[in-house]
Design a binder for these strands. Structure first.
Lengths: 117, 117
DNA sequence: CTCATTAGGTAGGAACGCTAGCTAACGCAC
DNA sequence: GTGCGTTAGCTAGCGTTCCTACCTAATGAG
């Protein structure tokens, strides 16, 4: 998969994954990998900056939690704005996918092709 | 539509459009707009540099042609490598779309959700 | 003549995800 | 207890990509 294919879609994927029950960076990474059938195996250098971005944008809130004795973990939840953005993101993904598929996978009978004049 | 959603997909869209019968920049722009139902209304500052990129990559060949008396036009055709890249691009688009849809549009019954441990 | 359309172009910048590195806790095998 | 794989988080800096904002020029309609 081309590396930059993700651009512009990662945010929605992250929101969906957090909404789906993965609440900290590492779990999100794993969930994305599993849910995508191994296609999205993203490095942590992609995940963590993106989560900060979402937090700065007010779409998620993160807080430090402690696991076991000492282990620190940053746990994220969607905000109301995040839920709205997720709904919007799903819808615009559908739009985008329809548009790309129309161009890319179009059956284009010769008679309907735009003619180079 | 988010602006950067295109990233990494434009090349395939352009190859498909050239293959579909639009052979110069302006016509490609129009064809993309029409074929996508108005969703891809790209500025020329996106199209022309992208076509140069494809030409540098050896996926299209461009040559200047003259229309009417004086009007110059740059006409593109797919190379063999371009046709290969288009096939590959269609296939990896399908992959990508399947993966994103799986994550984004998944019906995820509560019982199957990854639990935050 | 004027304006919209057709046609091509460039400079510069912002955004994004990746590469390549790092630290540290935990649990298990040896 | 030592070592290792996994879990967990983080950052600096880079390259690519597409967009914004401009520009020129020929053509054709009014």
């Amino acid at each position: 998969m081309k590396a930059e294919a993700l651009k512009g879609h990662l945010d929605s994927l992250l929101l969906a994954t957090v909404d789906g029950g993965a609440h900290h960076g590492y779990a999100i990474r794993e969930a994305l990998r599993v849910d995508s059938g191994g296609r999205f195996d993203l490095p942590s250098g992609t995940i963590y900056p993106a989560l900060y971005r979402l937090e700065r944008a007010g779409l998620v809130v993160g807080r430090w939690t402690t696991v076991g004795e000492r282990r620190q973990r940053r746990t994220y939840e969607l905000t109301a704005a995040g839920r709205t953005a997720l709904v919007e993101g799903r819808s615009s993904w559908r739009d985008f996918a329809v548009a790309v598929s129309a161009v890319l996978l179009a059956e284009r009978p010769a008679a309907l092709r735009p003619q180079a004049p």
